[in-house]
Amino acid sequence: MPVFQVKAIIIENSQMARDIWRMKIYSPEITKAAYPGQFLMLRVRDELLPLLRRPFSFSTINVSEGIFSILYKVVGHGTRLMTKMLAGESVGVLAPLGRGFSKPPDGTKRVWLLAGGIGIAPFFALLEMLKRDSSKLEISLFYGAATGEELVDCRFFENNNCKVNLCTDDGTCGLHGLITDSVERACSLTILPDFFYSCGPTPMQSKVIEWAKCNGIRGQVSMETYMACGMGVCLGCSISKKFFTGNKNEETNYLRVCREGPVFSIGEEN
C-alpha cells in the first residue's frame, strides 16, 4: 500500500456545526489510494507549535475530483489554528494510513452506523462504499452529540435511504441520552442489525463493544487515540487487545491503533 507525503492545496475550510469544521483537500494520488476508515496525518504548519502532525479520518473520498475531506472538532491549539487556514493555502499530508472499514459479511441485510460526536466523520465515505457495493442494504445511523448545535447536517444520510436517529446528552435534539441509550431503545423496538460500524470516544466504544457481545452482533469499531508518527514506529498509540476481546490474558497484548487499526473487528479474531 503506497503512502504519500505531500503538500496539498486546501479547496475549502468551513464550519459545519458548533466547533465542527470541514476541510476539503486536493490530492489526486491520496484520494485514489484512500478507502473509508483509513486516516491521514496533517501537518498544521511547518513550525514547532504544534510539534506533531494531527490524525484525522477520511470523511469523504471523491476520486473523480481528486478531493478528499476531513471533518474535525476544535479541541486544542492545533485544531484552532486549522480553522484559520484558507482555501488556496497548502497543508502537509501523510496518507493514506492504517486499516479501514471492510465490507459486511455476505448475506448481511441490516447495518447500523453508530457515531458519537466527531465520530460521524468517516461514515460519509463508508455509506458511499456500502451503497455502491450493495444497494439493498438497510442502513440506519445512530448519531449523538453533547448538544444539538454540535450535530452536523445529516441530509446526506437521509438522501441515501439511511434512517437517521439523533440523540443528545442534553436533550436539545432527538432522544435525550447517549448513543448507547438510543441503540438500546431501538433494540427493544426493532429487529437487531446483522452488522454494525461504530466510531466515537473511547468510553462510548467500550459500551458499544459490550452491547455487541451481549447481542452477538459482529461489527467494526474505529478508534481515536493520540498519535505521534501514524506509521507504526513510535508505539505511542497502542491499545490493549483486551479492550476489544474482554480477555484478561490479553491485557498486555498491545495493538497499534495506527497500524493494526484504526478499525478493529468485534466478534471475530482481529
Binding site: L48, L49, P50, L51, L52, T225, Y226, M227, A228, C234, L235, G236, C237, S238, I239, S240, T252, N253, Y254
Partner: peptide, 23 residues
C-alpha cells in the same frame, strides 16, 4: 517486552513526552 499501558505519549510545548516502556 509488551511495554507500558496507554496513554503512552503526550505533546507538550515543542516537545513530546513518551512512556512507551521499551516495547
Amino acid at each position: 517486552r509488551p511495554g507500558n499501558p496507554p496513554p503512552r505519549i503526550v505533546e507538550t510545548c515543542a516537545g513530546l513526552i513518551n512512556s512507551i516502556g521499551l516495547e
